[in-house]
Design a protein around this nucleic acid. Sequence first.
DNA 1: CCGATTTCCTGATCCAGTTCATTGGAAACG
DNA 2: CGTTTCCAATGAACTGGATCAGGAAATCGG
Lengths: 195, 195
Amino acid sequence: MTDSLALAEHVKKRINLTDTEVNELLSCFKLMKVRKRQFIIQPGFIAHHKNYVLKGAFRAYVVDDTGQDHTIQVSIEDWWISDYNSYLYQKPATMFVEALEDSIILQIHYNDEARLKQDHHNFETFFRIMAERSMAHMQRRIITNLTKNAEERYQEFEALYPEIVQRIPQYALASYLGMSTEYLSRLRNRRTKKT
Amino acid sequence: MTDSLALAEHVKKRINLTDTEVNELLSCFKLMKVRKRQFIIQPGFIAHHKNYVLKGAFRAYVVDDTGQDHTIQVSIEDWWISDYNSYLYQKPATMFVEALEDSIILQIHYNDEARLKQDHHNFETFFRIMAERSMAHMQRRIITNLTKNAEERYQEFEALYPEIVQRIPQYALASYLGMSTEYLSRLRNRRTKKT
DNA sequence: CCGATTTCCTGATCCAGTTCATTGGAAACG
DNA sequence: CGTTTCCAATGAACTGGATCAGGAAATCGG
């Protein structure tokens, strides 16, 4: 339970909570250990949980008709991850969510989240803020993808999330940025040679 | 005020409202007429409003360093539009939001929305649902952009929003789909000839 | 109703980024 | 600790879609 304090802090940054509320919140989450390469969500199965990463790293990706991976989201400590289209509408997932390292997560079930939101204006606010920020974040990504070329997208990502660039495998980053691994490799070497 | 009933219906589809609440909601919105080609949001200015389209059509777009347009969102009747990154964080906008036709909108001010959310658990829920769905929608768009090629993106859009395809100029659609107008024109003619 | 401005179409050329193939090194694994 | 599997690097050939240029049709304001 001491681990869960990170989650409590995370929530407290966004809304005010009494001690009772902290307890009620934490009682809804289940701790789970996940080994590298293990899936917590798979296509065809409904994503019943939203997952808060306590330790480790994950990526969510889809596989297209030609068999290619496309990374939709990457999450490290203090981030959330799920297949939101599956979770939100409680329909079968289209994504894989896979641990990139041995990890520890806190899971909340869809029904428990719904109950929290219904019972407390407070928590409704918290999840509203989360959704708004995710939306704004995704919109920025759409803009980046439309306006920038491969090199600029890599540079932007590197500037915004240097820790993640170090930490996740290159194929995951390339497929997040929407380019082939070969091309990303070239971009990286171009830069380091100049320096 | 009779016009505003469309908005009331829109909200009632998502949450339950008493008559008093309907009135309180509608009193926060201002009716505005906008002529074709007029901007309701411009880069550099803070987007103070979320806009509900009663009649007409809008597009939100950014202009990149090379002077090219990129359409981020298109909205017709019963949809919302704004520069959400500007609105949410109350920072200067990066987008233009422009009327594609003579239009009528209902505007809510950031502060009024905040007050509504704070005073009523109800309205907090409504805006949470809106944000969640926008987020899910944007994620689907990210997936489409990563996994599909130009022709497939056009086909998908045509299948999902046939009315919009008919209604907005081709350059707006092309820049939404992330391709040149020339290429979109080619795709369209390819199809109609085959049929 | 007409001239002007937008919008749409078509062909020729070009390039950013892909694909395919190969290699070497580093983890993972019994 | 040898072997297998994964991952990054690099070279060569190829292509989806952009760009540029020209003109034809719609649409609009007056």
